[in-house]
């Protein structure tokens, strides 16, 4: 199986409260924040690795995982890290972060998919900076491929994937015949979430994503990393959504500490009047 995994780097999501917005509101200032891979994309990469191996012999690859990112030269750090974790090949689409929107990325990915011909495009359900949740769905429509969004479980079948999706009020299970687009949710990295045809159903993965060992980090430097120009993938580079300004959310008024349950109940009843 060949899987394409789009990766995005984002300003450290654990410090998202440190994003600064200058008084002009012109842009979001991420200076000083550390770049990290979008967590959902890391989970997609982990799921892709699980689908291209026998979980009991993770050192033997049984398929190909190609990672792709959009951005300037320094985003290659994100790709090298993915190669060290186990991806086989990387592509950087040279682009400027703030000249992209979900639609343009999806259109460029479509061209890349037509060239690379993967069986699956596996990606995070959303990036935690823009929080848009759209590229996978748009890509699936542009390709006229079936999709399974918000995947919590994936079982490989012959020529298909059985996907459990996290939706409102429960889990919806779909079978998508390949090629297909799958976007992943948090639970996809649980120990029994993903099984390739080769992995025995009794196998349990470690919870979470795998980490690169030092020799793998060294070896990743020799793995192929290609550069592609955005213009070669998308002739029309206009975005459809544009931003005019940014603002910090209104601060919540500081509350009070109550001394005991009695005071809490009294405040809720008589002051907040919510009981």
């Amino acid at each position: 199986m060949k899987i394409l995994v789009p990766l995005k780097r984002v300003a450290d999501p654990d410090n998202a409260n440190k994003v600064k917005i200058p008084a002009s509101g012109e842009k979001i200032d991420t200076a000083g924040l550390e770049w990290k891979p979008n967590p959902f994309d890391e989970y997609a990469l982990e799921a892709a690795l699980r689908l291209t191996e026998n979980g009991t012999q993770p050192k033997v690859r049984a398929g190909e995982v190609v990672v792709v990112t959009f951005g300037p030269k320094e985003t290659e750090t994100t790709l090298r890290a993915a190669l060290a974790t186990g991806a086989d090949r990387a592509i950087r689409v040279d682009a400027t972060d703030d000249k992209l929107d979900g639609d343009l990325v999806a259109r460029a990915l479509r061209a890349l998919v037509e060239k690379e011909k993967p069986d699956v495009v596996l990606m995070g359900k959303q990036a935690v900076d823009g929080d848009s949740n759209q590229v996978g769905q748009i890509l699936a429509e542009l390709l006229d491929w079936p999709m399974a969004t918000f995947a919590a479980t994936i079982r490989e079948e012959a020529g298909a994937l059985l996907v459990g999706r996290e939706v409102d009020g429960g889990v919806s299970t779909l079978r998508v015949k390949l090629p297909a687009v799958v976007t992943v949710d948090l639970r996809i990295v649980a120990p029994t979430s993903v099984y390739s045809l080769k992995t025995p159903q009794t196998h349990k993965y470690n919870d979470g994503v795998r980490f690169a060992a030092l020799p793998a980090i060294m070896a990743a430097k020799k793995k192929p990393l290609a550069e592609v120009k955005l213009a070669d993938l998308a002739s029309d580079q206009a975005t459809k959504v544009s931003y005019h300004g940014f603002a910090a959310p209104p601060a919540r008024k500081a509350g009070i500490k109550v001394k005991d349950v009695g005071e809490l109940v009294s405040k809720l009843k008589n002051e907040a009047k919510v009981l």
Binding site: D131, S132, E141, F150
Partner: peptide
């Protein structure tokens, strides 16, 4: 922007060649 809306609407937008703003 329920699970339904988040799944369906970007696909509709792509079909229309329309821009999509979520949530």
């Amino acid at each position: 922007a329920s699970a339904y809306g988040k799944d369906l609407l970007p696909r509709v937008a792509a079909r229309l060649g329309a821009g999509y703003a979520s949530d």
